[in-house]
Amino acid sequence: MQQGKISIQNLDLHFGKHHILKNVNIEIPENQLTVILGPSGCGKTTLMKTLNRLVELEETVKINGKIFLDNEDILNTDKDVTEIRKKMGLLSQRPAPLPMSIFNNIAYGLRINGISGRRKLAPLVEKYLRQVNLWDEVKDRLKDPATRLSIGQQQRLCLARGLAVNPEIILADEPTSALDPLSASIVEKQFAELKKDYTLVMVTHVLRQARRIADYVVFMYLGEVIEQGPVKEFFENPKMEKTREYLKGAFN
């Protein structure tokens, strides 16, 4: 039975002989920020990439299990994979601006999805740049290559780019780890606002960040889900021994 927006059921994933995800079951609640927590190498990033099926680009990958999004199993669907990816905006660890101008970075996704013509694109580009508080900083240099922006600005641009294709879910893989503290806090603040309209899933290994912004926490270790629950419960009253050890800093 599906309870959350996304329901991951009995998910197993192998890269060749390596068992990366082991019988993963997670319910991701709608319009909340879910943090996937765990030491590096525990399969967090792989899990994210499985959600939007980018993991399929790897040659030796084998996936078993089900992932339901609004009652549809996205791993076994007739739908085009691009339809599924479009529903999930991805924000990676290091910002990856496309090799084009600031304007076109936003317009790219819009064009892919059939919106064309500058007259239609320009107001949309402005709207999404405003949404991430970037408009005032870049409105005079929309034609500059996106790589000329600071890292923090690039990350917000990437967020805006993702929002522009109207996703339902935003996946973020340690989105602030490469940023300076100020940009990081801007991005965090925006995440808190985005909860109203989107379901957010964020990977991090920073405990304090998780505590600060999460609604729901999933703790993973060596490819297994050890514990999951609402943030307060998770931090104040962890049930599993491994979780307690981790919260004490035993793995770092």
């Binding site: 990439k49 939007n52 980018l54 680009l57 691009t82 339809e83 990816r85 479009k86 999930m88 905006g89 991805l90 990676s92 290091r94 990856a96 496309l98 090799p99 084009m100 790219y108 996704g109 892919i112 999805n113 990437c158 780019r161 993702g162 294709v165 996946l171």
Partner: peptide
């Protein structure tokens, strides 16, 4: 060409060929 770029394009709903045409070749 960094994989992240292709991934960014794909997660915006672009097909593989669109990604190659507009991102990989361009980069």
């Amino acid at each position: 060409v960094p994989v992240e770029l292709s991934e960014a394009s794909l997660s915006l709903g672009a097909t593989k060929w669109q990604t190659i045409k507009f991102v990989v070749v361009r980069k």
